[in-house]
Amino acid sequence: MARTDIEDIEVELFQRALLARHGYDFGGYAPASFRRRVLNLASSLGCGSVGELTSRMLREDALLPNVIAGLSVPVSEMFRNPSTFRALRTEVFPILGSYPLINIWQAGCAFGQEVYSLAILLEEAGLYDRCQIYATDFSDAALARAQEGIFPARDARQYSENYLAAGGKRSLSDYCHARYDFMKLDDRLRRNVTFANHNLVCDGVFCEAHLILCRNVLIYFSDALQDHVLALFRDSLVRNGFLCLGNRENIDFAPAGRDFAAVDAAARIFRKNAGNG
């Protein structure tokens, strides 16, 4: 009993120290998964306790990128939940196609799996050249990886299956080169993609988007932070713009959720309500 209570205190102190020393605010994250990550981070950095991690983080500035990378856990997949990508292709792309220029914001892009997925489907729909895609994350380490577009070859089979299930028209291998243990996505897929650091907790509106894709990021946020970010998305979207969330996300508890109407509830695709500018 005592042991765990100490851990609770340590996690809270760690969070406060990270804010005070480095300006990163994790106060709005859902406690259970945040706690797990902090404990994992401490052990992966060889710290015997979260307290030790806190004191190292306070003194060793060089540790900060590792801390952020460890707390970010950029776990993703290409075409994760293929049915969602299929729905984007069939329900959203035709409407995007009516705009001369299309802005897409992918928030929480992890290692870029989703942004390359999106790029491929946009190419196949003949829309890519009209698109500007912003892929953002708050982890520089993740962004650097995303920019490379290199993934382990052992994931290739899963990605290919997902691609076909998402309604891909060719073969995923047409878009990448196999190199030993890795697959590298075609550089051309990145020609209209801008990778940038953006922290959903504290950074604001930076574009007028027609589609925002932010999957499996808000699940880590408490109700209040989820609401804050949904309001940010609302304010970043053009009138009737689209928002796509992760397949098991629930926005019923956020007042800003009422500014969106479900277009395809199962695929978690929403549209900003007309009344909201």
Binding site: A32, S33, R37, V75, N216, I219, R248
Partner: peptide, 21 residues
């Protein structure tokens, strides 16, 4: 627990999900 997600309980008894490793 839904497929593909970890299921966690928060203080107060609400459920949360994660896609951590």
């Amino acid at each position: 627990a839904p497929g593909g997600y970890h299921l966690l309980v928060e203080y107060g008894g609400r459920m949360s999900l994660s896609v951590d490793e």
